[in-house]
């Protein structure tokens, strides 16, 4: 019994950590840079499918199946998602902020369409199975299998966290935040905001692709249904709950929201008759939507919030000399 619970705990944690990776990717885009991505599901799907194509054994009737090692799949997934993010970013980042949002929304729709219809590549609605799983040789022992996968994901998230924290503190991260807080001032310092934003958007997209790959290999099976718009929502809810701009918050938010989501889904399937389950599930989604709006209204900084050093700096400027000019400069209209 305890072992079962432990195995389930490991399974839960592993899933939650794949979301934590997506959330970290989103944090680079939104939290650090203020870029709004409504197509997270699309980037995750790209990573998942790319990795599946690279690592699955050759299959009759489907292109791909190169049988490469899992690590190559992860890398490939991140790379392809990063390239797509770069292209979309190059197209829209210089335009109004909402154009990027609309374009990423389009990416999610287009990716969904492609995975459904490019059957020769993606297996269509049936998806791709037999994706190699890490530690597959332990599959006979659920506990050992679960724990080793959880361990792997913990290591990946920890590495990613350290790398991102390093980035945040680097000059590059400071420029990003400066741009987010006050584009004109950053420009005056000779930094090209478009280039920095594009880099951040690409890195974020690649991390989402990595998350998609990691998740696909953990589950061993992918289908278009896994990458519906609801996924985008979940990741947003995770980041907002955890506090945008804060990497620890992103991880915490992912585990927390995934926990709420998984337990409410379990509650739905336990307490509702099968014919009522679809309805109950839609209420579950209503909750996420309303919750997102409530957090935006009531606690826009999230649970942990962000250490804001840039704004303090700007305030100092404003106090010192030209308060009116500085303020006119920063006023949001």
């Amino acid at each position: 019994m305890i072992l079962d619970l432990l195995a389930y705990g490991a399974f839960f944690l592993t899933m939650a950590l794949t979301y934590a990776i997506m959330c970290l990717g989103l944090n680079v885009q939104w939290g650090q840079t203020g870029l709004f991505n409504v197509g997270i599901a699309g980037f995750v799907a790209i990573g998942a499918y790319a990795s599946a194509l690279l690592t699955t054994p050759e299959t009759a009737g489907r292109i791909g199946g190169f049988g490469l090692p899992i690590a190559a799949g992860w890398f490939g997934g991140a790379l392809v998602a990063g390239v797509v993010a770069y292209l979309i970013g190059a197209l829209t980042i210089r335009l109004r902020a909402d154009y990027l949002a609309i374009a990423t929304f389009g990416v999610a729709v287009a990716v969904q369409l492609c995975v459904l219809n490019l059957e020769a590549l993606t297996g269509g609605a049936f998806g791709i199975g037999f994706i190699p799983r890490p530690f597959a040789e332990l599959a006979g022992n659920p506990l050992a299998f679960g724990l080793s996968n959880a361990g792997l994901l913990i290591a990946v998230v920890a590495l990613l966290y350290m790398a991102l924290e390093h980035l945040v503190r680097s000059p590059w991260g400071r420029v990003l935040r400066a741009i987010r807080e006050d584009e004109a001032a950053a420009q005056a310092l000779g930094k090209n905001p478009t280039r920095f934003r594009l880099q951040a958007f690409t890195i974020g997209g690649a991390i989402m692709g990595l998350a998609g790959a990691a998740q696909a290999h953990f589950i061993g099976f992918i289908a278009p249904d896994n990458y519906m718009p609801i996924l985008t929502f979940q990741v947003w809810a995770m980041l907002i709950v955890g506090g945008s701009g804060n990497n620890r918050g992103a991880i915490l938010g992912a585990v927390l929201v995934w926990g709420i989501w998984a337990s409410s889904a379990a509650a739905v399937s336990t307490f509702f008759a099968p014919e009522q389950q679809a309805r109950a599930a839609s209420l579950q989604i209503v909750m996420i939507g309303v919750g997102l709006c409530l957090i935006l209204l009531l606690r826009p900084r999230g649970i942990l919030g962000e250490v804001r050093n840039v704004s303090r700096h700007i305030r100092k400027i404003m106090k010192s000399d030209d308060a009116e000019l500085a303020s006119r400069f920063l006023s949001k209209d």
């Binding site: 909402d98 949002a101 309805r279 209503v286 996420i288 939507g289």
Partner: peptide
């Protein structure tokens, strides 16, 4: 920021759609 409004509209759309589904 403007983008907060976009995000809120995103959340509202999810809730509104799922209410209809419900």
């Amino acid at each position: 920021a403007v983008i907060i409004m976009v995000m809120a509209s995103f959340g509202a759309s999810l809730a509104l759609r799922s209410v209809l589904e419900f």
